[in-house]
Design a protein around this nucleic acid. Structure first.
Lengths: 334, 334
DNA sequence: GGGATGATTGCACACGTGTGCATTCAATAG
DNA sequence: CTATTGAATGCACACGTGTGCAATCATCCC
């Protein structure tokens, strides 16, 4: 099978050409869809390539064709249920469409994600997908100037026109508020992390505004990271107030921590307290929880992202701004 | 800031050289650590580069230096708690060591992961990390022949020498068995998926063997995928037998589904039934579960993988074969 | 001051591939 | 049989970078 191919390096097209008795161009054309090669030559080339274990060098190939099939992905908290599901679907979609995923973890990005984006640009990627962090607009402008699409998920850039794809946080928060009102909630509270994440703040503010429309003031709790433990802490803090009867956690992970701790503190849910989450992660439908929540369609989001990537980047084009619908999932915490 | 840089393409070293009034070599050396450049020239080059928004083209750079800083990662079920945590830590570690992560999702790999590995090889990666799937040894041989390290996580290759890094499945299964025996278990069962995943089979077989050492026959349940729902199904199937008093689920995800369903069926855990899992995913320590389990050190595993990648690939070298210790985490399901 | 030494710098080649252009070849029509 | 057409093929250039080698320059010692 694997022939003796000399001590150094990979097999190159020239080696295949020599073995097949054709020019190097013929080899290149054989592996270029739509190029003009006779069936006979193509066959000889393919045989020779197989015998030698030849594979096209994407580095050289992308260098000459000025664009690669790489897509840069920036994300943090990759171990989290919602984000990991998103990454799973995104990486699958990219692969199935002939693109590859260059993943940079933004967890340790103390300087912000600008350095990560610069690094990605060095690979001459086709597009950049940002799942976490807020890129400075100077970098985004530079990407656009170089014809690299930038796609923001669940966030928007203040001053620069970018492709934006997110769920309907405002609509979802309203659904949550209305559901709690329907459960005759009089004393609402909202729980979010303390990082000022865009999507969480949108949900929080929309929830508060909706409640105010009905004359209710919402207690706001915001601290820590987006985690189960933070939700638990929120419960310990908020439930010192006995009259609290409706809580909206802007994330399911927060909601699950809140729910467990509330019950441990002796509150019955939904008896004394109604609870609504956001995301619909798999754990929310597990038996002990059965959490009423707002479902985001990750598959819809990912599909929109993929479509945005595949759009040809024409200079004057208006950026995409998709807001995907969400839905209330009735379970048993209201 | 961003100058008018002509209509086509990225800024190249030649543009910077022209603006700085030096040769292109000087530009290249400025961005090459350890190269010889005078401070004055370096400064002029850096200024010019900044003004033009120049970044080194990694494609060309890697092409000439014959090796990239890319590491290919193959994995499936990326939305799963254990695997996503692993990927999170791995991608962080790679980035912090100056390497980039080329992620290929193996979920849709009907033909096996060989095509994915071939694709990765086209990028002339430095190493390939396999989190899921069993690569045919022919491909692995080819990788080694080309100086690309292949690192298998949680599995080993039958006939080819490869770097292997896994947890001590056998030791962990013994710990699980011993813990159940300590709880006076007489009728044990083991639950695994139906896919024949290597690590799961090792745990299962070691558990069964250990029980047999003590004269106990273990009921074996194996079906479906590795999921919460599969664990629930196992409980429905197995708990028709009233006498079952000790269950080892080879994965926490299975264990949590099993636990919820067992309780819903009226079994008290740990009263009538003891349960041990494997992995120690975050959810296992959540309040409703508090699962007794075998903890894998993902940080230890990832550290070993990173060390393996960074080892210089010398031809004659013996492959790495690390088996990392696991520990019993006592909680309240035994 | 002259020669030696060491640091800088520019030239030119190499990396492996895609593709326009001219050339060759076979096939077809007249 | 000749002229025409279209496909197939090879040549040569281009992509953007790293680096060995030789040339240049400044510096230092005697």
């Amino acid at each position: 099978m694997t022939q003796d191919k000399g001590p150094r390096g990979f097999v190159k097209a020239e080696d295949v050409a020599r073995l097949a008795g054709v020019s190097r161009s013929a080899v290149s054309r054989t592996f270029t869809p739509g190029a003009s090669v006779s069936p006979a030559v193509r066959q000889r080339v393919q045989d020779a390539a197989k015998a030698l274990g030849y594979r096209v060098n994407r580095l050289a190939s992308s260098l000459i064709s000025e664009k690669s099939h790489l897509v840069g992905v920036v994300g943090a908290n990759l171990g989290t249920p919602f984000i990991s599901r998103q990454l799973d679907q995104l990486s699958r979609g990219l692969l199935s469409r002939g693109m590859q995923c260059l993943l940079l973890n933004a967890a340790d990005a103390d300087q912000g994600i600008a350095p990560l984006i610069e690094l990605i640009l060095e690979f001459r990627v086709r597009a950049i997908v940002i799942m976490s962090g807020s890129p400075p607009s100077s970098i985004i402008d530079e990407c656009r100037a170089n014809g690299v699409r930038v796609i923001l998920m669940h966030r928007e850039s203040d001053d620069t026109a970018t492709d934006v794809i997110m769920s309907d946080d405002v609509g979802g928060a309203k659904l949550a508020a209305d559901r709690l009102l329907q459960a005759r909630c009089k004393r609402p509270a909202v729980v979010s992390n303390g990082r000022g994440t865009q999507s969480q703040m949108r949900r929080r503010d929309a929830f508060v505004a909706r409640m105010r429309e009905f004359g209710l003031d919402t207690e706001i709790w915001a601290s820590g990271t987006t985690s189960y433990e933070t939700g638990a802490q929120a419960a310990r803090d908020l439930l010192s107030d006995d009259r609290l009867d409706g809580v909206f956690c802007v994330t399911d992970l927060l909601a699950l921590g809140f729910l467990d701790t509330a019950r441990e503190m002796g509150r019955s849910v939904p008896g004394q307290l109604s609870l609504v989450g956001f995301d619909d992660i798999p754990q929310s439908s597990w038996l002990p929880y059965h959490l009423t929540t707002i479902r985001q369609s990750t598959s819809g989001i990912v599909a929109s992202v993929l479509a945005a990537i595949e759009r040809d980047a024409r200079p004057g084009e208006a950026p995409i701004h998709h807001i995907l619908p969400v839905e209330l999932v009735e379970r048993s915490t209201c």
